[in-house]
């Protein structure tokens, strides 16, 4: 199993309740911001990826809502909110 699919499998064990909208967004025009490199390195769910053009993309499925990316990148780069009540990750052990 590749590293990424192993991580996906691990996230697959968690309980997630889907929300209607992405709760974290990279602000328009900030896709190449250097600060996003920290999010690629640190996101426990591996949700930040760089494409061939050097732009960073984000998918919020599997987000553990830890806030690491917000602290690492800041509000100039990310539009960061918790998911709506009753959605997102629901820990059964914690």
């Amino acid at each position: 199993m590749s590293e990424n699919s192993a991580l996906k499998a691990k996230l697959g064990i968690d309980v997630f309740k889907p929300g209607k909208v992405a709760h974290i967004k990279i602000k328009p025009g900030r896709e190449k911001d250097a600060r996003l490199q920290a999010a690629i390195l640190l996101c426990p769910a591996g949700l930040y990826r760089a494409n061939e053009k050097g732009e960073v993309t984000l998918t919020t499925d599997g987000c553990l809502e830890c806030g690491t990316c917000l602290v690492a990148c800041g509000i100039e780069v990310l539009d960061w909110n918790y998911p709506e009540g009753g959605t997102g990750v629901q820990y059964r052990y914690g």
């Binding site: 991580l7 490199q37 920290a38 690629i40 390195l41 640190l42 996101c43 426990p44």
Partner: peptide
Amino acid sequence: GIEDMGTDHSAAEAPALFD
């Protein structure tokens, strides 16, 4: 640590460090 690791681009990604 977020500052330390987030600025070291030679470091492995967090999930890989965990594994």
